[in-house]
């Protein structure tokens, strides 16, 4: 609206690598599991320290104009794609280091690819974000209690035990296999939402008191790869060739 509030970025440093932190080899123990489903091992892995920002995403859409606000194909994003941007290459002043939101799974995935990375899996994200700590549970629960809260710069809060920031209490994040949210990938029959409603959700849960985790899984399972949301962004991960613990 106000021209002065518009921050236009014509030149961007494509080569600045996002800070990464190392997730050591870890065990993921799912909250929801099918009979016989075992714990799995994740990592070692390099994980973006922060979610992808508006500025970083601007660099991407400039390099790949087919992912700009005006050119994105409806197949790859719903009508809310980059809704908060003021144009194909502009967002409100002061939001450069806000996490980018209103991005679809297709766009997030392509972004990571363009950096030689990928989206994390549910297991990787859950472990790296230290989601099960009671401190983070409390943080998430408090977040739901502040509807319409404004975003802020990434990295403003202390890092978690792996060195990650902003995993909780700022935005949701895309994961590669979001559509397997409730049932594991090889679940036999039944829709992924079947066990999500009413008592069903608690039946398969290891600990029915992990409310924040229920919410996160419910959120993921409500998504479609085209969807965008004001509270949904992403970060990328990179496999470490040859291990390296």
């Amino acid at each position: 609206m106000k021209a002065a509030a518009v921050f236009l970025l014509f030149v961007f440093p494509l080569a600045v690598p996002a800070a990464e932190v190392k997730l050591p080899k870890s065990v993921y123990s799912p909250l929801f599991r099918d009979p016989g489903e075992a714990d799995s091992v994740v990592g070692p892995l390099l994980v973006d320290k922060t979610p992808v920002t508006n500025q970083e995403f601007l660099a991407f859409v400039t390099a790949f104009p087919q992912f700009s606000k005006s050119k994105i194909q409806p197949l790859f994003a719903d009508g809310g794609y980059l809704a908060h941007w003021l144009g194909d290459a502009a967002f409100a002043k002061g939001e450069a280091r806000f996490p980018v939101t209103h991005v679809s799974w297709f766009a997030a995935r392509r972004y990571c690819e363009s950096r030689g990375k990928r989206l994390p899996t549910i297991a990787e994200w859950e472990v790296a974000s230290d989601a099960r700590s009671s401190r983070n549970e409390a943080k998430i629960m408090a977040w739901y209690g502040r509807p319409g809260a404004r975003l802020r710069d990434v990295g403003a809060e202390p890092a978690n035990k792996f060195g990650l920031t902003d995993a909780h209490g700022l935005i949701w994040e895309w994961v590669d296999n979001f559509s397997e949210s409730i049932m594991s990938g090889d679940s036999r029959g039944g829709s992924s939402t079947e066990s999500l409603f009413c008592g069903g959700a608690a039946l398969k849960a290891k600990d029915p008191k992990m409310y924040a985790t229920f919410m996160r899984f419910a959120f993921r399972s409500s998504l479609n790869a085209r969807y965008t949301s004001v509270n949904l962004g992403f970060r990328c991960v990179r496999d470490m060739d040859g291990g390296g613990e």
Binding site: P147, T193, F197, A218, V230
Partner: peptide, 28 residues
């Protein structure tokens, strides 16, 4: 602006979840 998906189970509905499955909706 919702942070969460929501749905509705109408006890008046004869059908899966009282409509819960058919109405499960992401923000926006």
């Amino acid at each position: 602006s919702s942070k969460l998906p929501h749905n509705i189970d109408l006890h008046a509905v004869t059908g899966q979840g009282g409509g819960a499955e058919g109405s499960f909706t992401a923000p926006g």
